[in-house]
Nucleic acid binder design. Structure first.
Lengths: 108, 108
DNA sequence: CTAGGTACTTTGTAGTACCGAGTACCACTA
DNA sequence: TAGTGGTACTCGGTACTACAAAGTACCTAG
């Protein structure tokens, strides 16, 4: 598939928020999940920078837990601010994607 | 409305391609058209940088014409490479937006 | 004890939208 | 005829984001 990096800007963070909103989880697992979901070229480094940003912006609650199969995991869960941010993200996505689809329709 | 700048990255260029693909037009008019279409915060400077990039990448044919109501206009039309790029853009858009919508559905 | 999967960190880079200021053409009007 | 406002393009710099690359470290299987 083509390179989606530029198109992912601004949306990937929302996707990570959505995944965390579904269940408390950690970076490595989020990356695997994104890959399964069709975001095939997203790599760990990218997800970790997003997670650090979310933490810095106070959108998540972080809990470190031992793993049993490797080094300890940092589990992320949304707090109130995070849930609000997620709602905003979907509103923006709906707005933007509808405009873009309208643009396409109009051209045919 | 919220700030869409980050989300526009990677998609705005495609929108400009689509508009040019519809009819030969120029920067100032493209900006006004985008604003009408709901991309309310897109400003001229942004559109011009995109147009210069399209020209540099050999996706458009440029023709300068006098205006009658102001300085001369630079009209842009898609060439074969531009039409191909536009097709690729919509393929990427369809791919990405369907993944994102799937992600959202899965969470409910 | 080595290899490979798991798991996180850090530094640096490239690409994109946007800001701000500037230049310049034209019509209208006081 | 000077000034204002709409039209139209250019250019230098900034902020933000996804990604690359390299490293550290834990654990199991052979």
């Amino acid at each position: 598939m083509h390179d989606l990096t530029e198109m992912l800007k601004g949306t990937l963070e929302g996707c990570v928020l959505e995944i965390i909103g579904g269940e408390e989880t950690y970076g490595y697992a989020i990356t695997r999940r994104l890959n399964e979901l069709g975001f095939v070229d997203v790599v760990e480094g990218t997800v970790y920078t997003i997670l650090l940003r979310l933490e810095k912006n106070g959108l998540v609650q972080v809990t470190k837990r031992p793993s049993g199969v490797g080094p300890p995991r940092k589990f992320y869960a949304l707090n109130d601010a995070g849930r609000e941010e997620l709602t905003t993200f979907w509103a923006k996505w709906e707005y933007l994607s509808s405009r873009i689809n309208n643009l396409r329709e109009g051209g045919r």
